[in-house]
Protein backbone atom coordinates (compact mmCIF):
# COMPACT_ATOMS: atom_id res chain seq x y z
CA UNK A 1 0.00 0.00 0.00
CA UNK A 2 1.44 3.31 -1.12
CA UNK A 3 1.76 6.11 1.41
CA UNK A 4 1.15 9.56 -0.01
CA UNK A 5 1.56 13.08 1.34
CA UNK A 6 -1.88 13.01 2.94
CA UNK A 7 -0.67 10.42 5.39
CA UNK A 8 2.50 12.02 6.67
CA UNK A 9 1.92 15.75 6.13
CA UNK A 10 -0.85 17.99 7.33
CA UNK A 11 -1.43 21.74 7.24
CA UNK A 12 -2.80 24.00 9.97
CA UNK A 13 -6.40 24.99 9.13
CA UNK A 14 -5.97 28.41 10.75
CA UNK A 15 -2.54 29.54 9.51
CA UNK A 16 -1.60 27.12 6.68
CA UNK A 17 1.69 25.95 8.27
CA UNK A 18 2.90 22.61 6.91
CA UNK A 19 3.31 20.09 9.72
CA UNK A 20 4.20 16.47 10.25
CA UNK A 21 0.95 14.64 11.01
CA UNK A 22 0.82 14.23 14.80
CA UNK A 23 0.32 10.76 16.24
CA UNK A 24 -3.16 10.16 17.70
CA UNK A 25 -3.16 11.12 21.36
CA UNK A 26 -5.56 10.18 24.14
CA UNK A 27 -4.52 13.00 26.41
CA UNK A 28 -4.57 16.15 24.31
CA UNK A 29 -5.05 17.48 20.81
CA UNK A 30 -1.94 18.59 18.94
CA UNK A 31 -1.29 22.34 18.78
CA UNK A 32 0.09 24.31 15.87
CA UNK A 33 3.48 25.82 16.82
CA UNK A 34 2.81 28.95 14.75
CA UNK A 35 -0.72 30.03 15.72
CA UNK A 36 -1.53 27.71 18.64
CA UNK A 37 -4.76 26.30 17.21
CA UNK A 38 -5.77 22.79 18.20
CA UNK A 39 -6.17 20.08 15.59
CA UNK A 40 -9.11 17.81 16.35
CA UNK A 41 -7.78 15.38 13.73
CA UNK A 42 -5.14 14.25 16.25
CA UNK A 43 -7.79 12.85 18.58
CA UNK A 44 -7.56 9.21 19.53
CA UNK A 45 -10.54 7.46 17.97
CA UNK A 46 -12.02 4.04 18.67
CA UNK A 47 -15.19 2.96 16.94
CA UNK A 48 -16.45 0.95 19.94
CA UNK A 49 -16.44 3.89 22.37
CA UNK A 50 -17.89 6.19 19.74
CA UNK A 51 -20.64 3.70 18.90
CA UNK A 52 -21.48 3.06 22.57
CA UNK A 53 -21.74 6.75 23.50
CA UNK A 54 -23.73 7.78 20.42
CA UNK A 55 -26.16 4.87 20.87
CA UNK A 56 -26.65 5.80 24.53
CA UNK A 57 -27.39 9.38 23.44
CA UNK A 58 -29.90 8.17 20.84
CA UNK A 59 -31.64 6.02 23.46
CA UNK A 60 -32.13 8.90 25.94
CA UNK A 61 -33.14 11.08 22.99
CA UNK A 62 -36.39 9.09 22.73
CA UNK A 63 -37.83 10.07 26.15
CA UNK A 64 -36.23 13.53 25.79
CA UNK A 65 -38.41 14.11 22.72
CA UNK A 66 -41.56 12.32 23.89
CA UNK A 67 -41.96 13.40 27.54
CA UNK A 68 -42.81 16.99 28.54
CA UNK A 69 -39.89 19.08 29.80
CA UNK A 70 -41.99 21.28 32.06
CA UNK A 71 -45.48 21.96 33.30
CA UNK A 72 -46.75 25.50 33.76
CA UNK A 73 -49.87 26.11 35.81
CA UNK A 74 -51.80 29.38 35.69
CA UNK A 75 -55.05 29.83 37.66
CA UNK A 76 -55.34 26.07 38.06
CA UNK A 77 -54.95 25.38 34.33
CA UNK A 78 -51.82 23.40 33.40
CA UNK A 79 -49.94 23.40 30.09
CA UNK A 80 -46.96 21.19 29.28
CA UNK A 81 -44.01 21.77 27.00
CA UNK A 82 -42.18 19.14 24.95
CA UNK A 83 -38.87 19.72 23.11
CA UNK A 84 -40.36 20.03 19.61
CA UNK A 85 -43.43 22.07 20.61
CA UNK A 86 -41.80 25.50 20.66
CA UNK A 87 -40.62 25.26 17.06
CA UNK A 88 -43.94 23.78 15.91
CA UNK A 89 -45.93 26.49 17.74
CA UNK A 90 -44.01 29.21 15.88
CA UNK A 91 -44.40 27.47 12.52
CA UNK A 92 -48.10 27.07 13.28
CA UNK A 93 -48.45 30.81 13.97
CA UNK A 94 -46.85 31.77 10.66
CA UNK A 95 -43.25 32.24 11.83
CA UNK A 96 -42.16 29.57 9.38
CA UNK A 97 -38.62 30.75 9.00
CA UNK A 98 -37.74 31.20 12.69
CA UNK A 99 -39.63 28.03 13.65
CA UNK A 100 -37.73 26.07 11.01
CA UNK A 101 -34.43 27.44 12.29
CA UNK A 102 -35.28 26.32 15.84
CA UNK A 103 -36.39 22.90 14.63
CA UNK A 104 -33.11 22.53 12.74
CA UNK A 105 -30.84 23.54 15.61
CA UNK A 106 -32.61 21.71 18.46
CA UNK A 107 -34.07 18.60 16.83
CA UNK A 108 -32.97 17.81 13.28
CA UNK A 109 -29.24 18.65 13.48
CA UNK A 110 -28.53 16.98 16.87
CA UNK A 111 -30.38 13.79 15.89
CA UNK A 112 -28.74 13.60 12.46
CA UNK A 113 -25.38 14.19 14.13
CA UNK A 114 -25.91 11.26 16.50
CA UNK A 115 -27.22 8.97 13.75
CA UNK A 116 -24.16 9.84 11.61
CA UNK A 117 -21.68 9.11 14.42
CA UNK A 118 -23.42 5.86 15.35
CA UNK A 119 -23.69 4.58 11.75
CA UNK A 120 -20.14 5.59 10.79
CA UNK A 121 -18.74 3.88 13.89
CA UNK A 122 -20.82 0.78 13.23
CA UNK A 123 -19.78 0.53 9.56
CA UNK A 124 -16.14 1.12 10.58
CA UNK A 125 -16.22 -1.86 12.97
CA UNK A 126 -17.88 -3.99 10.28
CA UNK A 127 -15.41 -2.71 7.64
CA UNK A 128 -18.24 -2.30 5.17
CA UNK A 129 -20.11 0.15 2.94
CA UNK A 130 -17.23 2.62 2.56
CA UNK A 131 -18.97 4.74 -0.08
CA UNK A 132 -21.98 5.22 2.20
CA UNK A 133 -19.64 6.08 5.09
CA UNK A 134 -18.12 8.82 2.92
CA UNK A 135 -21.60 10.32 2.36
CA UNK A 136 -22.34 10.20 6.07
CA UNK A 137 -19.03 11.92 6.85
CA UNK A 138 -19.91 14.77 4.50
CA UNK A 139 -23.36 15.13 6.05
CA UNK A 140 -21.67 15.15 9.49
CA UNK A 141 -19.33 17.93 8.36
CA UNK A 142 -22.13 20.21 7.20
CA UNK A 143 -24.61 19.54 10.00
CA UNK A 144 -22.26 19.72 12.98
CA UNK A 145 -22.21 23.50 13.52
CA UNK A 146 -26.02 23.72 13.47
CA UNK A 147 -26.62 21.57 16.54
CA UNK A 148 -27.18 23.95 19.47
CA UNK A 149 -28.41 21.85 22.38
CA UNK A 150 -26.15 23.66 24.87
CA UNK A 151 -27.63 27.04 23.98
CA UNK A 152 -31.10 25.53 24.21
CA UNK A 153 -30.43 24.29 27.77
CA UNK A 154 -29.59 27.84 28.85
CA UNK A 155 -32.76 29.13 27.21
CA UNK A 156 -34.87 26.61 29.18
CA UNK A 157 -33.33 28.01 32.37
CA UNK A 158 -34.02 31.61 31.28
CA UNK A 159 -37.65 30.73 30.42
CA UNK A 160 -38.17 29.08 33.81
CA UNK A 161 -36.92 32.21 35.58
CA UNK A 162 -39.13 34.45 33.43
CA UNK A 163 -42.26 32.41 34.18
CA UNK A 164 -41.69 31.84 37.90
CA UNK A 165 -43.50 35.01 38.99
CA UNK A 166 -46.46 34.41 36.63
CA UNK A 167 -47.55 30.98 37.84
CA UNK A 168 -46.43 27.59 39.09
CA UNK A 169 -43.71 25.88 37.07
CA UNK A 170 -42.25 22.40 37.39
CA UNK A 171 -39.49 20.67 35.46
CA UNK A 172 -40.28 17.07 34.58
CA UNK A 173 -38.87 13.81 33.11
CA UNK A 174 -38.32 15.14 29.59
CA UNK A 175 -35.99 17.86 30.87
CA UNK A 176 -33.75 15.47 32.79
CA UNK A 177 -33.58 13.09 29.81
CA UNK A 178 -32.69 16.11 27.68
CA UNK A 179 -29.78 17.04 29.98
CA UNK A 180 -28.51 13.43 29.77
CA UNK A 181 -28.85 13.58 25.98
CA UNK A 182 -26.90 16.86 25.87
CA UNK A 183 -24.04 15.44 27.98
CA UNK A 184 -23.84 12.25 25.87
CA UNK A 185 -24.08 14.18 22.58
CA UNK A 186 -21.22 16.45 23.64
CA UNK A 187 -19.15 13.39 24.63
CA UNK A 188 -19.94 11.64 21.33
CA UNK A 189 -18.89 14.73 19.34
CA UNK A 190 -15.63 15.11 21.30
CA UNK A 191 -14.77 11.41 20.93
CA UNK A 192 -15.38 11.40 17.20
CA UNK A 193 -12.62 12.01 14.67
CA UNK A 194 -13.86 12.34 11.12
CA UNK A 195 -10.37 12.56 9.64
CA UNK A 196 -9.48 9.14 11.08
CA UNK A 197 -12.58 7.80 9.28
CA UNK A 198 -11.57 9.44 6.00
CA UNK A 199 -8.11 7.86 6.35
CA UNK A 200 -9.71 4.44 6.79
CA UNK A 201 -11.83 4.95 3.67
CA UNK A 202 -8.75 5.91 1.68
CA UNK A 203 -6.75 2.92 2.90
CA UNK A 204 -9.59 0.67 1.88
CA UNK A 205 -9.72 2.25 -1.61
CA UNK A 206 -5.96 1.72 -2.02
CA UNK A 207 -6.26 -1.87 -0.84
CA UNK A 208 -8.93 -2.40 -3.51
CA UNK A 209 -6.70 -1.09 -6.32
Amino acid sequence: MKQDEGDTITACLECDLLLARPAPSKSREARCPRCGSRDSASRYFTSQTSLAVSLAALIVAIPAHLYPQMEFTLLGRPTTYTLTEGALALIDKGFLWVGGLILLSTVVAPLLLLVCIALISLLWSMQQAWAFTARLLKLFHYITSWAMLDVYLLSVIVSVVKLLDMGKLELSTGFFCFVAMLVLTTAATLLFNSEACWNAIEKHQHAGD
Binding site: M70, L74, R77, A89, K93, I102, S155, V156, S159, L163
Partner: peptide, 12 residues
Protein backbone atom coordinates in the same frame (compact mmCIF):
# COMPACT_ATOMS: atom_id res chain seq x y z
CA UNK B 1 -35.33 29.66 21.82
CA UNK B 2 -36.79 31.49 24.83
CA UNK B 3 -39.50 33.04 22.62
CA UNK B 4 -40.46 29.62 21.24
CA UNK B 5 -40.72 28.11 24.73
CA UNK B 6 -42.81 31.02 26.06
CA UNK B 7 -45.15 31.08 23.04
CA UNK B 8 -45.81 27.39 23.39
CA UNK B 9 -46.14 27.33 27.18
CA UNK B 10 -48.20 30.49 27.76
CA UNK B 11 -51.30 29.85 25.66
CA UNK B 12 -54.33 30.18 27.90
Amino acid sequence: FVISILVSLVSF
